[in-house]
Design a protein around this nucleic acid. Sequence first.
DNA 1: TAAGCTAATATTGTCAACAATCGGACGACG
DNA 2: CGTCGTCCGATTGTTGACAATATTAGCTTA
Lengths: 248, 248
Amino acid sequence: MPDFNDQLGREGVTLADRVFARLRKAIVEGEIPSGTKISEPELAGEYGISRGPLRDAIGRLEACHLVERRPNVGARVVSLSQEDLLELYLLREALEGMAARLAAQRMSGRDVDELRRLLRQHQERAELQEGIAYFQTEGDLDFHYRIIKASGNVRLIRLLCDDLYHLMRMYRFQFGMASSRALIAFREHGHIVEAIADRDPEMAELIMRRHIRSSRINVELLFDDKAPKGARATPAIRAANIGAAPPP
Amino acid sequence: MPDFNDQLGREGVTLADRVFARLRKAIVEGEIPSGTKISEPELAGEYGISRGPLRDAIGRLEACHLVERRPNVGARVVSLSQEDLLELYLLREALEGMAARLAAQRMSGRDVDELRRLLRQHQERAELQEGIAYFQTEGDLDFHYRIIKASGNVRLIRLLCDDLYHLMRMYRFQFGMASSRALIAFREHGHIVEAIADRDPEMAELIMRRHIRSSRINVELLFDDKAPKGARATPAIRAANIGAAPPP
DNA sequence: TAAGCTAATATTGTCAACAATCGGACGACG
DNA sequence: CGTCGTCCGATTGTTGACAATATTAGCTTA
């Protein structure tokens, strides 16, 4: 299980660090719903700190694109949208494809074995739970997480692990996308590992990109099913519209 | 000429916004050298503001990875390294490849014409100045900037235009990489536009990736030349290697 | 009655002072 | 003579109060 909070190895020492981690967790896991207005005095009182560090934390949340801020107005938790999720998948396709390519070039034999072991673990769990829980338990994210780390590109790692993956987790919490693709996804993971073990960067990138693209298409179909017409309201969308500006 | 400061359309209204823009410019253009320690009281006095908004601005600089901060110690302007630049190129290869793909899918005919006109402008300037200044005048960045915007993927746009491109500009200011590749790069730009005009996403992505990869290899060779260990490659040899895709 | 303006209120942005922490210098000890 | 411990100065982190701005409620007027 990846530790998404090890921003700097140790957990934050400063107040702003800690409240940032707490807020991020609360937002990602849906404890603070999408579209909620962030009241500085209220939160400051709740966390028992002053507004200074809190503003700092909110600033970092804004940098992660978890809240949106308008000058002299305030910050709101981002509203998740289908379009944004699809855009996110395109980013992942490009970036993680590159990560897989680099991993195939630079990963050590030991780490490949480690990766194989991880997959075996997943297989056991997946068989036990008949596949449905592969995504829910974040085994999927775990696998991707390791590939990214194995790329050795610190900039790529920071970008994906510090920013984008929290967003992915947020989407999963809100849309709860356990899917019929779980078993297929698991097999695709196996193919990726094989390509990496073969030291075939082209192939590793190709499969990884297809893998993520398939996920995106799956989500696309899911949306189309749930929303035959424009006016559908998933829970997240409904929550997002609370207090939000009326659409133009 | 791309406007790298239109973070939110209008220029910042709040103090932190303005000082952030000023600081970013100063850092990118080398006015504040790499590795410099950022003294909060000093800068606050210099800009005539309090430490509050200044800390906010520094926080945003940290989010852009233009400064690095250690708790209870302070912030320093990032030190540019060859490895980091090469990593940056890999990111660009992945992301701008995707941008070119999307642009080929979604760009309007009018915008393609606009892009052609831009290239003609570049050609005139390039012919006048015999190619050397194509990179220096940021015509290159300008072209890439437009492709990215044309992708229509707001997340991709924000990532590349708000963060990575300031870093690229910083590297150009510091390493001054005007190169013999200017004319070749210009021709490659032409090929990219053709692929987009043909509505050939695969091809557009392929060429864009090769284009950026060639730039990376060029920089790599440049570094190797300057490094004392290897034999110096003549410009002819360097030119011969330009654009050659690595064998499969 | 509805639209527009004004004033009150609450929230955000900014400031200056206080507390906590780090880096370096000096001196003591092995 | 080198190394460790301690102290001091300076810088950062934090706090509460002040000023500026946006939102909202109420009032006036067509």
